[in-house]
Design a binder for these strands. Sequence first.
DNA 1: ATTAGCACTCACCTCTGATGAGTGCTAATA
DNA 2: TATTAGCACTCATCAGAGGTGAGTGCTAAT
Lengths: 348, 348
Amino acid sequence: MADSLNERSQNILEAIVEDYISSAEPVGSRAISRKHNFNLSPASVRNVMADLEEMGLLCSPHTSAGRIPTGKGFQYYIDTLLEVRDLNSNEKQNLRNSYRFQNMRMEDIMQEVGRVLSSLSQYTGLVMAPKFISTVFRQIEFIRLSRGRLLMIYVSETGLVQNKVIEADPTLTVSDLEQISNYLNSELNGLSIHEVRAKLNQELKEDRIHYDKLKKQALNLSCAALQDEIEDQVYVSGASLMLGQPEFSTPEQMKRLVQAFESKKLLIELLDRGHSARGVQIFIGSDSNQIDLEGCSLITSNFSNQKGAIGTLGVVGPIRMNYSQVVPIVDFTAQLLSRVLDREIGQN
Amino acid sequence: MADSLNERSQNILEAIVEDYISSAEPVGSRAISRKHNFNLSPASVRNVMADLEEMGLLCSPHTSAGRIPTGKGFQYYIDTLLEVRDLNSNEKQNLRNSYRFQNMRMEDIMQEVGRVLSSLSQYTGLVMAPKFISTVFRQIEFIRLSRGRLLMIYVSETGLVQNKVIEADPTLTVSDLEQISNYLNSELNGLSIHEVRAKLNQELKEDRIHYDKLKKQALNLSCAALQDEIEDQVYVSGASLMLGQPEFSTPEQMKRLVQAFESKKLLIELLDRGHSARGVQIFIGSDSNQIDLEGCSLITSNFSNQKGAIGTLGVVGPIRMNYSQVVPIVDFTAQLLSRVLDREIGQN
DNA sequence: ATTAGCACTCACCTCTGATGAGTGCTAATA
DNA sequence: TATTAGCACTCATCAGAGGTGAGTGCTAAT
């Protein structure tokens, strides 16, 4: 589409976007013509700006204000003008040192990652723990709560602990449960949840033939336990940092934002969008998106260990966010976390 | 102290507090003399108000505004004027029906309680899960993460699952771990964490005499696992509702509030204050308290099952909160949750 | 094609005066 | 002696007026 912009227009658009990113105020033609040495008068800049406005890349809040990039303008900037520099080794080391992962539970690691993401970017950090469906089976335990109700505890390869209450045959004894979990642990160890499900389904079919009561119960139990999805966990850090941003300075905006952050469902939905992609993804929350996070952008990346448990982390900031600074942070943090999951937590 | 207030002063103070609770605006003498039929002229009311102000129970934001109750004023109101009516059976039933507890994990129950507390009170609901220290041992499992690092999973009597990463002798095999957990599960089942610790300490002493290597390792492991505190969990619901309250309508107030709710540490500290008490407690966050929750009050009550696992729940609202409405809700919810923990989750 | 010049727009700030709710004090009243 | 009517005073709030300045669009000159 608007890739037909000539170089001057591109330069001016870039200048406007970057000025706007750092000032949060409409940018005028004079400022552009002076600060950046294009050797162009304000009037010429104005002409270009008028063109860019017509193309829908800029808009002005009112007649005598400067121009602001539209969502489309930001999109263009990100797609074709933004240069993401890699972190140098010094910065990488700093980032590595920011994290404290020793002897932490997965929950704590996720929280820590959110904390650091937020404090480095000065925006809000989001982390979604690896989805149950993407994990690899390590161990399962059943604990009797009350008649016919069991607590199932599932531990994934990476040490992610999830639990769930299930209904079960009330006649099962404690030693039955022990045998069942032993059986499942030896049969399912190392399989992905996909494989686990396939195996369960297959065995359920076969089982109709030779009757082994305990095995059958094991299969029933594990079906109840593993067939459904387990709710995703999201960690939000530094929500209050967003409230310091000028675009969310009115009480209404603040309220809307806090509500959005409170709704884990919305956040999960948002993070899910980048869940299949590789590398860093940028979502500009302008027009078509959720109304709740209007004015926000989301930078995400997935992390995973070698066995494939996939989670997503990212940073939410105003659309006017400093992409060139935040993108590398998100990128490298995801890589770092992936490595940590393999090294520190993965078996051996 | 100010218990020496005569009846008229008490009536007027009560009227002012209640007017202020419902309007969030300074109350004037005229309003009091008209709405409440004391048969007193505004001038007389003013005299009483002046007295109350001198006693530190009222204050005025500026010369020509009405009066606002001070923290001390609210304290007096709560201590001696507030009448908390019990819920009638209809309301109790409604409250019971608001909750959905079937087949929920402890985490979900806590969250659900927060959600309902918040939606009924229209303020912010807080729930602190039963403290590790107050729980009763049900089961423990060890899972090998990497060389010398174990994931310990602890399940309490009520089905509360907590986990922790501990360092351990790297030479321990999987079957060692199994034996150890079997041993611990049979030895410690049904003991409170206090008793568990006492037992462990005692056996550690004795063990120096007869050398049973595995038993010794079991003791070492369980010490590492159970001797320290495990971080408390807090659930916050409906933080955004507070942002709708007029006293927190400025951007600065909102930011402060959101920051306070983000700091779980602060909340834990707050909830801990009422942790030993029985029944409903009210904390007025005015003067001496945390600056972070200035302008807020906290109504809490503890819940516990018969075995004694104690958690705390409550509602944070503006000081100007509707105590007579919220106190019974908090009270009854705590009772309800206590019963649920016994019935639904407790063993059989 | 570029730019100087100019009229025009409009948010923002400050100053002003009016309004009204509420107070404290004093003197009259029951 | 307790209550109250009356009155002067205070002060937040609001609306209107006028000035300022940043920025624009258009046109004509370069």
